[in-house]
Simulated scan of single mutants.
Amino acid sequence: MLENPMVNGQGFQETYASPVGRCEECKDSVFQGYEGVLFLDKLFCCTTCLENHLKKSGAIQEI
Rank of each mutant, 00 (worst) to 15 (best):
V7G: 00
V30P: 07
L38P: 05
T48L: 05
Q13T: 09
T48E: 08
F44R: 06
F44I: 02
C26Y: 10
I60P: 02
C45T: 04
M1F: 06
L2T: 11
C46G: 03
Y34L: 07
Q61Y: 11
Q61P: 11
L40I: 12
N52A: 04
E24Y: 12
N4Y: 06
D41F: 07
L43R: 05
F12E: 01
F44Q: 05
E51M: 12
P19Y: 15
F31I: 03
F39R: 10
H53F: 14
L50S: 08
E62R: 15
Q32K: 14
G9Q: 08
L54I: 08
F44C: 01
N4T: 03
N8S: 02
T15H: 08
C49P: 09
L50T: 11
M1K: 10
C45R: 12
P19W: 14
C26D: 10
T15I: 03
G58S: 04
F39I: 00
V37D: 02
E24M: 04
T15W: 13
G9L: 01
L40N: 10
S57I: 14
T15G: 04
L2R: 12
F44E: 06
G11V: 01
C23D: 06
Y34A: 06
M1Q: 04
V30E: 01
Y34F: 05
C46N: 12
N8I: 00
N52V: 12
G11P: 03
Q13G: 00
Y16W: 13
E62M: 14
L54W: 14
Y16N: 00
T15Y: 13
N4M: 06
G58F: 12
V20T: 07
L38K: 11
Q10N: 03
E25L: 03
F12H: 07
E14M: 03
G58N: 12
R22Q: 08
L50F: 11
K56A: 09
Q10H: 00
S29M: 13
I60H: 14
P19R: 13
A59R: 13
C26N: 07
Q13W: 13
C26E: 11
L2K: 05
F39S: 09
M1Y: 08
L43M: 09
S18K: 14
N52F: 09
P5F: 00
R22M: 04
K56P: 12
L43H: 02
M6T: 04
H53Q: 11
S18H: 12
A17C: 05
L40G: 04
G58V: 09
G11D: 09
A17K: 14
Q61K: 15
C46I: 02
F12T: 02
A59G: 09
V7D: 03
N4Q: 03
S18Q: 11
K55F: 14
L40A: 01
E24A: 06
E51T: 15
R22A: 01
H53A: 12
Q32R: 15
G21S: 01
E35C: 01
C45Q: 07
L2S: 03
I60V: 11
N4S: 05
G33T: 10
C23A: 02
E25A: 01
D41P: 05
F31H: 07
F44H: 07
K27D: 11
L38W: 12
I60S: 07
